[in-house]
Design a protein around this nucleic acid. Structure first.
Length: 570
RNA sequence: UGGGGGAUCGUCCAACGGUAGGACUCCAGACUCUGACUCUGGCUAUCUAGGUUCGAAUCCUAGUCCCCCAGCCA
């Protein structure tokens, strides 16, 4: 996946175009309008990357890869008031983790501040930009409304020399924040508000993560973006729909400035996901307001959160590939993402047994003190993953959900008198229940059939259920964290007060889980399947005396689903 | 009522004047030492109304609905 400059003569190995942007790229390549496609992913370092950014990353880097071009990582760092080094570092880390490499093409809009400044002076000299002394309120008032054009600023007619002088003094730091701005002289009567003399530079006396205190004025997004694209030779500047009506302005700068190349902007619909919010503003509030533990809280849709949650990067790439790219606003069902996560995890996660909510089982006819080692396969679809030994003894734990005193007809796990298989071990039959004062079942007394060792009956008899288990004395304790959606509404972004739709039950901690001992060697972020339950990974908050596991996602559970359905049906 | 976009199964995406197709979901079944995985079968869609055409999701006309824009944010 290295992104390196390839000679233009190289064969294009792109697959058939799969979306309208790839169509355009292919057409431009075939028509010889460009020799090599050059894209860029241009994050502003004012927050962490989320799964919505993954769509843009996969699109830009993907196109470059498929068509033999290159993709730049460029920080759009034109607003030091909001940007931080922490975010810059996190963004680089997350793009790499997702699986992309910008090679030597790491850039910053701030790398171009001097050239941008020069172009601004060019515009002034050409009579196409002026320094405006109006206050912010005055500018707002004279900008007009959606249905009416604006009024020209009283400073619009300033002479070139005066503009130049004022602009240079803005740069020199002679004026306080907000005192003046440099505006392009376009068209105050335009129906497109972006063309009503947009601001090019504002006075902002704030230290910049990269340029320090060198600059007192900073270019606006509109003035910086297209020209940065032109400097880098970007051929296809891909962005989201809300910039569609900025395109005329983008083109205006490219047409009116002496730029080294002529990039074009194309827009696609950003990603929306049910039950989650992909707005940096809201995500930032979740973090700052303490609603989550940080940007990498496993409940967050950030790449850092997903990574900690145990979601592999290939699952995200697969998801993005499946949802496609178009111009229609849409909201993808979170289930679609979960599908990709399960699919990726199923292929790679090693299988282990873990009892999340233990119920003690005593095998009455199993000799006290005896311990047997049994073979358990590590991955059912991958013999190369091998087998491991697990220990069986007289006292075991099974899952509380796997036992019902008064089961419904379709329940085929353990209940009084029934026989089930303990995976890789023996058939056991429940003989009696031990209850506490409250009448709750606290222990099961069972018997096992020695002739079913390994899990198969010599007489060929069948059982309807196979259950996971651990040996009480040969298992280890752990905390297990289960997560639910952060929001309790399918479209939380439709609410103005997101706190009202916050799911107060998004984290559930199980304090008494019992795991196979090998799980103590699990690595952080390395996926493992707890059989019959889901995919988990060790969390970095584990300590030497307390393991912490995170549930990435549960296995599909048709039994639970059918139960819920019946319950709902009454 | 300014400007810019968009409407196709429940959801997401195709079809570029020639049989509306795929994925997810859902439903039914098979298989199973994970009620997982896998496999088989199935349901469901062209915003509306006109028009052009042998033939329209696609072209034309008129509507309807949805999204974005009035930061010295990006």
């Amino acid at each position: 996946m290295a992104q390196d400059d390839k000679s233009s003569g190289e064969t294009i190995t792109a697959e058939a175009a799969r979306d309208f942007i790839r169509d355009i790229v292919k057409t431009d390549l075939d028509a010889g309008r460009i020799k090599q496609v050059v894209t860029r992913f241009p994050p502003e370092p004012n927050g962490y990357l989320h799964i919505g950014h993954a769509k843009a990353i996969c699109l830009n880097f993907g196109i470059a890869e498929e068509f033999g071009g290159r993709c730049h990582l460029r920080f759009d760092d034109t607003n030091p008031a909001k940007e931080e080094q922490e975010y810059i570092d996190a963004i680089e880390r997350d793009v790499r983790w997702l699986g992309f490499d910008w090679g030597k093409h790491l850039y910053h809009a701030s790398d171009y501040f001097e050239r941008l400044y020069g172009w601004a002076e060019d515009l002034i000299r050409a009579g196409k930009a002026y320094v405006d002394d109006q206050t912010q309120d005055e500018m707002r008032a004279s900008r007009g409304t959606l249905t009416e054009g604006g009024q020209n600023s009283p400073f619009r007619g300033r002479g070139v020399e005066e503009n130049l002088d004022l602009f240079r003094r803005m740069r020199a730091g002679e004026f306080p924040n907000g005192a003046r701005v440099l505006r392009a002289k376009v068209d105050m009567s335009s129906g497109n508000i972006n063309l009503r003399d947009p601001v090019l530079y504002r006075i902002l006396n704030a230290p910049h993560p990269r340029t320090g205190t060198q600059w007192k004025i900073y270019p606006s997004y509109d003035f910086a973006h297209g020209q940065s694209d032109a400097i880098e030779g970007i051929t296809h500047s891909v962005c989201t729909l809300e910039f569609e009506d900025h395109r005329p302005l983008y083109d205006w700068f490219i047409a009116n400035l002496d730029v080294p190349s002529k990039p074009h902007q194309y827009e696609f619909a950003r990603l929306n996901l049910t039950y989650t919010v992909l707005s940096k503003r809201v995500l930032t509030e979740l973090v700052r307001g303490g609603h989550v533990t940080g940007w990498d809280d496993p409940r967050m849709p950030t790449l850092a959160g997903l990574r900690r949650r145990g979601v592999p990067p290939e699952a995200i790439r697969d998801f993005i590939k499946r949802i496609g790219v178009a111009k229609a606003n849409s909201t993808v069902d979170a289930g679609q993402f979960e599908f990709s996560v399960r699919e990726a995890l199923n292929k790679t996660a090693l299988r282990r047994m873990a009892v999340l909510r233990p119920l003690k089982v005593v095998i009455e006819n199993y000799p006290e003190g005896q311990v047997e080692e049994l073979d358990a396969v590590n991955h059912p679809d991958d013999p190369a993953a091998g087998v491991r030994k697990i220990k069986f003894s007289r006292e075991l734990y099974i899952e509380q959900d796997d036992f019902m005193e008064n089961p419904p007809k379709k329940f085929f796990r353990l209940s009084p008198g029934t026989e089930v298989r303990l995976r890789y071990a023996y058939f056991i039959t429940c003989r009696e229940m031990v209850k506490n004062a409250k009448g709750e079942v606290t222990e099961l007394r069972c018997t096992y059939d020695p002739a079913t060792k390994g899990g198969n009956a010599l007489d060929g008899r069948k059982v309807k259920a196979t259950m996971h288990w651990v040996s009480a004395a040969h298992s280890i304790a752990a905390d297990v964290r289960l997560y639910n959606p952060l929001f309790n509404k399918p479209d939380p972004s439709g609410t103005e007060n997101f706190a009202a739709v916050l799911n107060t039950n998004s984290l559930e901690v199980l304090g008494g889980a019992r795991l196979e001992p090998v799980l103590s060697e699990a690595k952080v972020e390395q996926p493992v399947q707890f059989e019959r339950q889901g995919y988990f990974c060790r969390d970095r908050e584990s300590t030497s005396n307390r393991l912490v596991f995170i549930r990435t996602i549960g296995l599909r559970d048709t039994w639970a689903k059918d139960q819920a359905k019946e319950k709902a049906a009454g």
